Simulated assay, not measured.
Amino acid sequence: GLERALFLEADRMRAPRITDENLRNQVDVVKEEIRLNVLNRPYGGFPWILLPPVLYRTFPNAHNGYGDFTELEQADMDDCAQFFDTYYAPANAVLTVAGDISIDDAEELVERHFGDVPARPAPQRPSFAEPPPSGELRGEHADPHAPLPALAVGYRMPDPVNELDGYLANLVLAAVLAEGDGSRLQQRLVHREPLVTDIDAACGLFGPFEARDPDTFIVTAMHSPEVGQDRVLAAVDEELDKLAGAPPSDQELAKVTARWVAGLHREHDRLIARTLAFGSLELLYGDPGLAHSLPDRISAVTPDAVAAAAKALRPDSRAVLTVTPAGGDQ
């Protein structure tokens, strides 16, 4: 129940049991997770690990969040204790409780279990800002498990916190481009002139509202070896140019935003998803209530805003990652 969950989280925040044995066990767990999710599966880490070091230049934005095995093995108990003391503090945490509860009872339980957790100052929140690329950046990754070549194209997006309307226009643009069989890239590159076996467009390496600035607009595609990536890139650029010069019709936009809004309502019907959304939006915006106003904000995105978002995705300010099969005969 709620009280047990609060007790466990408060106990973890109060005094974790950091021992060398526990640390080694957790390092082994993470290494096995990397083997399963990245090293031993087709397109492992594509694009969320492989694209950032091509698009970004600073360590916080470009590095592999998992860490490589050497870095993991170098972690020691002092590192863990310092991280805990710096970041795992009440002043740096958001506790979200949602569901069929009494607010007064929930507050009493939170105070009972968290009230004696030692206070520590919140760490200074750093800026991860860096200039956008001044030209096209290219990278390549050889994948021993990939059956087909793939590419990921990354662009910088508007600041999700300080330029929310521009950010939402990019969310809608991604759906116009690649959500559903009727979307522009699906229609052209999968159906009319089949250059790819799969194509997608998305905001955020892990989805929208998961990161502060800088965030990433991504187009990914898988294609046969007979189709050169430049043909795919040229088609993507042409579709973006069309949208930049002629905004989507009201009817096309209404279909896309209706799907987005329905998806939000469907997602937030699930208690765990609603709870996570409240917490994420509190962290990013200081406003968990944004979860309730996002559907109206997305519905208000205009055709001109989508055209402006498309115009900003320029070939001379992007990263292109190529994944090449490297496993011998495919």
Rank of each mutant, 00 (worst) to 15 (best):
A305R: 13
L8P: 00
E108C: 00
A98G: 10
R57W: 07
S317I: 02
D28G: 15
P295D: 05
G44R: 07
D116L: 08
N22V: 10
P123I: 04
R270D: 15
R125F: 06
D105F: 00
I199W: 03
K311W: 04
D105V: 01
T257C: 12
L294P: 14
L321Q: 08
L290I: 02
F7H: 12
R156K: 05
K242S: 13
Q187N: 07
A235P: 10
F209G: 04
D165V: 07
F217N: 05
V236S: 06
A10M: 09
A91T: 07
L283A: 12
E226G: 02
I272T: 14
T302S: 15
G115Q: 12
G182L: 08
A5I: 05
A174F: 10
G67D: 06
V161W: 10
A307I: 12
V261S: 10
E71C: 02
E210P: 01
V190P: 01
D287P: 04
V261E: 14
R112K: 14
F217H: 07
P248D: 04
V54D: 05
R14L: 00
Q26W: 00
F69G: 09
L233P: 11
L137N: 02
L253F: 11
G45D: 10
E130M: 03
Y167A: 07
A262D: 13
D237K: 06
D11Y: 00
R14H: 10
A174C: 06
